[in-house]
Design a protein around this nucleic acid. Structure first.
Lengths: 200, 200, 200, 200
DNA sequence: TATTAAACGAGACGGTACGTCGAGTCTTTAT
DNA sequence: ATAAAGACTCGACGTACCGTCTCGTTTAATA
């Protein structure tokens, strides 16, 4: 039982990996250098040393280039491994996430992606799987916590995700201050309060 | 001591309030009708029946028109009055806020404003006072709660604001589901847990 | 009794005569310099120092620019005055015409116009009035000759025009040799033979 | 005595006659169907079911395809046989020529070829042999007439050709009316006047 | 009351980028 | 070994808006 198509055996030249990477790199760098508004398909193509058509052939929108560039340039690796306790795992998840946006170029790209999703309905839908993957990662942790009975009463798992990612994005979109470890502690205090000392 | 200039007593016709309102209305309506991306200064001017220059004379950017239109079209009135308890006041604040974005046209405008703030550094700064006014409103409540000693250990007042507005904006920007009363309850459970039954 | 509209008193800036002339000049010169194929609207606009839109606003096609440029750059003045005899008038008409295409830049423009008329049906119709005006000029002469009874039996006035302009254009389009006075004599011999000496 | 080259006996597979004819047919038909401007190499290749490269391999320009297609699709056969008198032979030549452009597809192709010759200097030179062959055919007739002493005083043989082909092309390029037998009579009256009745 | 300066509608202007098309070249695979 | 399929770079297309700049016209304070 194979899901794969048996390769219709297409003739002709294959897609140029060289061009693909040049375009992704150009787009990624340009966002930080000149700002998303000033990034144009023409500019990307020029910097990548390829024709505009090669960009348009493979991506519908400059934001789609960035979305793919993000995967190439900032391989997202956030710990979701079983650490024994919800609190520990959540702490790690938060710290990893907060670290990620300190990777050069990541923040402006994320801002641009979220902005474009508001403006271009088509891209909104293409961004969602990316956002959902992040939620799914967190869900691994909360689901495990639920099984263990560690989840405090209050928000359900979806609402926890809204709180965590809401905090994360709001800081990035609406303020100038990145979330720090101090913020992670506050989130932990709210979502996974430490076992009270006096509890017996 | 007044900062205001003593009015140099300019000659000539005054700014046309008719045009101002026509432009604000046109911009506000166009966002919902055609989407922010498709809103152009030319389109606003055409719909408002005025020249482009009249728009450019008073606003720097189409987002600035919307920011002012929002104040006119959806007068923001969120309760911050003293209700005796933090939990009650926060509940009211949340419900009022969540209701606001159900006003027709408000959500797409807010999405557009936040998007433009990511893309246009100048506008980002002009949007901040708007966001800060919202934070200040919430701060009235948390400050009062702090005085009363009602604030649970954990997040400080700024972090509370990040959590509340983060939740609010994340739902609007990244998901398709508006926050509801159920969500308000979850936020309350996290930020202002009810007095535990057994406590006395 | 005036046929003229009472001028609806249009508001706003008038068409820029500066741009118009810069565009006509640029187009006219470029044809000779780089060849009609290499003339582009972009190139014309760049050389004229104006935006492409300013060209597109007033002309449908690069050939239309040239057609107007021809009128400006090579004011066509071919004698059709009454000289007493058909033969004299036709001789003058031919010599004036043949001289015209020796004006720098005229020949390549005429070639381009006729070529475009074959390729772009819309322009073909816009070129026709120009061609018809040339025929009308010749017709002044042949009609006068007909009145005088000077027209030899054989081709009618339209066919005379076909012969004259056919000769003219064929030389320009299909050969490399311009028509000369010698050719004018040959045409005269055919169309307006001198009164045979022995005839009486 | 054959004009054909003795085949240099090249190695490897020979040129595919199937593709050649498919391309010529596609080009010839497309000109009438969509107009020369809209004919593209890509379109020809697509219609012929072959790759673009196969077209480029054998022809430099779309006009060259048409020039060859014309020879295949409308084998040009104009009578130049000795008929005893200049007038008779010229009449036949004119009628045959005028008939040719009534063959479906011939006129638009001829218009396109002449147009391209104005626009593409390279093609102009490749078209000339075609035009010269037509002149050579007429020259057979005029040369015979000259030998017989039938040529009237006035235009020399080259000028006669200019007049005949000029008339022919001018009608095709600049007017909408094909030359007819009536026109042929007018040309005859001018170039080969019938022996005057009263001549003794 | 006449003057004059500002704000207005209209819209032409020099620009920039769009997204598309086709040119002509090059690469891969199947026949 | 050929040729189809088609990806590539390149350049121009014609369009849409940008933000600026005239144009008259209208309005209101000033002289």
């Amino acid at each position: 039982m194979t899901d794969e198509l048996p390769e219709p055996a297409k003739r002709g030249p294959k897609r140029s990996e060289t061009s693909r990477l040049a375009i992704l790199t150009a787009a990624y760098e340009l966002v930080s250098e000149v700002g998303y508004r000033q990034v144009t398909i023409e500019g990307i193509a020029a910097r990548a040393g390829c024709g505009k058509q090669t960009v348009y052939r493979w991506w519908a929108h400059k934001a789609d280039v960035l979305l793919e560039a993000l995967a190439v340039k900032a391989d997202i690796r956030v710990s979701t491994e079983d650490q024994g306790s919800y609190r520990t795992e959540l702490a790690r998840f938060l710290n990893d996430s907060f670290e990620l946006i300190r990777v050069p170029g990541v923040e402006p790209v994320l801002q641009a992606l979220m902005a474009e999703a508001q403006i271009e309905p088509g891209f909104r839908e293409r961004l969602r799987p990316f956002l959902d993957r992040r939620r799914a990662a967190l869900r691994l942790i909360t689901a495990r916590a639920a099984e263990r009975g560690e989840l405090p009463v209050g928000p359900d798992q979806d609402q926890i995700a809204d709180l965590v990612f809401g905090f994360f994005w709001y800081r990035m979109l609406a303020t100038d201050s990145h979330p720090t470890n101090v913020d992670a502690d506050a989130l932990l205090a709210v979502l996974a309060p430490p076992p009270s000392k006096g509890s017996r």
